[in-house]
Each structure stands twice: as C-alpha cells, then as structure tokens.
Design a protein around this nucleic acid. Structure first.
Lengths: 293, 293
DNA sequence: CCTGGCCATACCGTGGCGGTATCGCGCCTG
DNA sequence: CAGGCGCGATACCGCCACGGTATGGCCAGG
C-alpha cells in the first residue's frame, strides 16, 4: 500500500542540501557523515526528513548499498549548482565589501601553465586601459577553474575547450591551437617529427601524471602525483612522465624537454568566461580587451 | 576604534538569505517581517547576525530609513539568483520523480498571447517527432517567463528580445518580426497607414494597460488593470486601451480591432530558452525541432 | 551460526529561533 | 518645546530541532 505523503511546506535549507550532496556523492552514510564532521544517525535522519518533506524518494537503500533514484540524480546535479550559487553570493558580497573599502580588484583564474603568453599579453593590455583595476591571477589545477568561477571565488576565467565545461557561463573565444606531447629530451619518442595520441598509450617508462581531484585525493595509476606545472616539467626532464599540452606551452619549456606535435589530438580553444550574472564593468572591460587581442 | 570581527565560519542558510532579500526589497524591517509572516525583532536579529557572520555591512540604518550598501546590493542580486537555483533544484527534483513514476512531460512557458502561431507549429512538429513526450504549456504575464524558468517551474521558455532578459539561459533564435499597435476599430489613430511610438503617448482616451508585477500588485497609472490577453483584447475593442505587440498577434485579433504597423518600434526576436544545466533529452529534442521550423 | 558492516530508531541535552515586552532615538506636530 | 509616534534594537523567555550516544535490525560473508 502506497503511503500518502502530506503536501510539501517549506523551502530546502542549504544545510539539508549539503548533507544530501555529501551522501549522494559518497553513496555511504558513514563516510558522508565523517566528511561532514558529524555522526551518522543525525545525517540519516536529516536525509529521510528531506525525502519526507519533499515527498520524493531520493536514495534507494537496498541491503548493504545505497544508490540514487532518478529524482536523486536530478537533485544532486541541480543541488550542486544551487550550492555553488549560494557560495558565489557569499564570496562576491565579501569581495564587493572589500572593493567598496578601497581595494577593488578582479580575480582571474586559469589552469597553471596554460596560455601563459596570451595571459601576459592580456594583463599588459588591460593594465594600459584607462580605468583598469588590479587583476589578481589565481592558478589552479586542471578542471578546477569552472568550480572557482561558479563558486564566486573568481570573477573571470580562461577555460580550454573541449576539456573544460563552459555550460552556464558567458564566453568569448580567444585562440585555437593544436597540441604537442612534451617528452624528456633523448627519449625514443622525442625523435619522431610527429606523433599520434595512441603512440603515447602504453609507454611503460612514461606513465601519465596524476593530478589531485577536487577532494584532494589522487586517482589510482602508475604515474607520479603532481601538484604543479613546474613540478611536472621537472618530472618530465627527469624522464619519469610526459605531458600533452597546447602548442603555446612551448615557450615555457626547459631545454631538456622536447615538444612533438600530435597530429590527431583535438584542437584546443582558449576562451574567456564569466558568470552571466556579472554586472562588473571591470570584468566587461577585461573581456573587451581580451577579444581585441 | 574599528571593532575586529572574527573570521567567518559557516555557510549562509537559505532562510537567512530569504530574510535579507525581503528586507533589501522592502527597505523596511516591519513590512519585510509582515511579508515573511514573522515579527520584526527576530528579523532584525537575523539580519545583524548575518552581517556579523559575514563580516560585511549590508544595510545602512540611518534614522528613519534603511538603504543598501554596495555589498548589500551585490548580495541582493546574487542572492536572488541563488534562491532561484535552490527553488529550481527542488521543483526539478519533484518533476523528475513524477516523470520516473510514469508521467514524463515538458513544461513550456510563454507570454500569454505571443507567438501563438509559432507555438502551435512547434507543438505540432514536436508531437510528430519519434519519442516525443507531452508538453504542458504554461501561459503567464509579461516578464514572468524568465523567473519561472530560472525557478525550475518550467523546462523551456519562449522569450522575446529585447523585452525579456535572457542572461543565464542558453537560447536559439526562432523568429524576428516588427511590431504593430492594436487599436479599437474606428479610433482616429486606426485610420493611419502606419504610426510612430510617440504617436501612442499621451492619447488620453487610450491609456496603456497595467499588468500585475511579480508581487501581484499593479503599478499606478490611468490605464486599466488586466490579467489576461483576452481581457486586454476585449478592453481594446471596447475602446478603453491599446496594445503594442509583435506582428504575429494579428492572426488572433477580433474583427473590432485594428493593427497598425509601428515604423520605429524595436524589432522583436522570439527565442527558445532553457537552463544551461538542463540534461533533458526531451528539451533538447524540442529545441532541435524549434530551430528546424 | 556467528560476526561484522551499515542504516534506522530511541532517547537526551543544548543551542538557536521566534515570540512578547520594552527601550532608544529622531521626526513631526500642536 | 513637550509629547506622540514610527521604527529599529535589545532583553528575556519558551520551544523545537538539531546533533550526540546507545542500540536495534538486517543482511552478507566466513
């Protein structure tokens, strides 16, 4: 017999949503509770309360395993976006207060080591604009930029299609280029005039590096763990790993590394992205300057 | 002596943000409290708590007037978006649950009376597509579509540039057309072959109609209050008001009204819009169908 | 059959939230 | 100039909801 659930009353609180997202990501109440810094029973209760109040089953608890229902998957997706919007509101407000107190600035985020020439030109050109304000450059690991931009920690980002997801942002294309494999000088592969992506698979002595994921842990694999671009370059020159990167990285290579064009790698487009809700004149100026380059 | 405020700890709760938005919109604690269905003192306290926790002054309370600081204005703007995202997460989750229970559908929202031919063609064409699902059409007053779409009550919308704000949505243009003035048959102006917008100002016997705003109240003015398109058309044929509308409305006019082209009115572009976070195949199909028309 | 892992339930204490009463402070008015 | 009034802040109180501990129920694996 289907139990009738009374009509839903209030709004979802961020606390509840944070709890749900944690459980939906871990698919394990105990680990989620640990991540949230709380005990498991109140978490269980909060989730079932949320389900009861929404009148929707979000998680399926079969014996010894938790899984998402279709509705739960939607709430995970939309809820992440909503939590990011809450965060963004908070960060942007705090930054607006600082700006009003006399320290206006733009935070630009980009993947460490990417598009550095373009970035240098952009910063130089923008600084020459009348009315420009200081630009704080924030460098981050791959795939983190969009999160920082959506979370309001940055005002504008340089993203790289097709790797970065640009949905939800306004963008302008700046540059499209091919990719190269960066290899240790003297390695067998480095003597080829060009390579294919498949040539880089299963090179036992050059396993792909591993970057930390958003929770700070590393995916499993044989490659070395890296936190920064310079670290990676050093590991390449030591003959421990390789890197696939847009052409423009060549200008920053050490002379004990070699860049070999990849004929079948997807072309990379660098775009400048900003949140559609942005009302900042400074961001608009920066974007205009970038497009003119 | 500036009082040092301790570093901010937790996240902003939707409750606090709802409270702040209410006060920021009313600029009056008493009225805001009334709107929120609570007493004024706890509201005052919640706001000052929020300010203390964020370490940011949001409202300026001079004697007998409340105003927004720069930071407060940012939080109002970003906070509205964040609350809409929370709402959207909730509504979409509930609709996903219904869909999973066997009643999948798309909710399409459009301004009542606009683009009806286009809409009819679209619905017909989409219904003929393989794998199409029922489309619930939701009609609303001018300027409400974007809110319904952002709030997750609709999956897709027909918007009209330049009137509707499309920031934050993905869009495809469908149709661009001129505008006409719809007048009572027999009115002096209706005999002109064409008109300018300025000709419609200060026509004492045809004051512009007033639509309800988002809070349900009407702006002040001499024109009649209207809630629906058919109501408006009836008022026009009674000689009480006039309407400015895209060309395509002609097909639905009663024969006691006349449409006169406006030579200097901005051209109107009908676009189909959907939230960038949408993962619905049905929405994608509907959009593809619309673009092909 | 026993053990261990995992989520749910039961029960308890505390902190936060909202309510009422009242204060402080300008402004307006007679 | 005194009194009234409008409005936000403060004081104080009661309740509920949230989080913690202890424990139960259930299933899988050995």
């Amino acid at each position: 017999m289907a139990r009738r659930v009374r009509a839903y009353a209030g709004a979802v609180e961020t606390r509840e949503l944070r709890y749900f997202v944690a459980v939906a990501e871990e698919l394990h109440f105990g680990r989620a509770a640990q991540r949230l810094g709380m005990a498991q029973p109140p978490l269980s209760r909060a989730i079932s309360q949320l389900e009861r109040r929404m009148g929707v089953e979000l998680l399926q608890r079969d014996s010894h395993s938790v899984s998402l229902t279709a509705a739960g998957a939607v709430l995970l997706h939309e809820g992440r976006a909503a939590l990011e919007a809450m965060e963004a509101a908070e960060h942007r407000t705090r930054r607006a207060a600082l700006a009003a107190a006399g320290r206006p600035s733009i935070v630009l985020v980009t993947k460490a080591g990417a598009s550095s020439e373009l970035l240098a030109k952009l910063l130089h050109a923008y600084a020459a604009e009348p009315g420009s304000i200081p630009v704080d450059v924030m460098l981050c690991g791959p795939g983190q930029q969009a999160r920082l931009l959506a979370g309001g920690r940055a005002d504008v980002a340089l993203l790289h299609r097709p790797f970065d997801d640009t949905t939800g942002f306004d963008t302008e294309e700046l540059l499209t280029e091919g990719q190269v494999a960066v290899l240790p000088a003297g390695h067998v592969l480095s003597t080829h005039p060009s390579l294919r992506l498949s040539d880089l698979d299963d090179v036992p002595d050059l396993p792909r590096p591993r970057w930390p994921t958003s929770d700070g842990s590393y995916p499993p694999g044989p490659g070395p763990e890296v936190q920064s671009h310079s670290q990676l370059l050093q590991l390449i020159s030591l003959g421990r790993t390789l890197m696939v990167s847009p052409d423009s990285c060549r200008s920053q290579l050490r002379d004990d590394t070699v860049a070999v064009p990849l004929v079948d790698a997807p072309r990379v487009t660098t775009v400048i992205a900003w949140p559609p809700s942005s009302r900042s004149l400074a961001v608009a100026d920066l974007v205009r300057t970038a497009v003119r380059l």
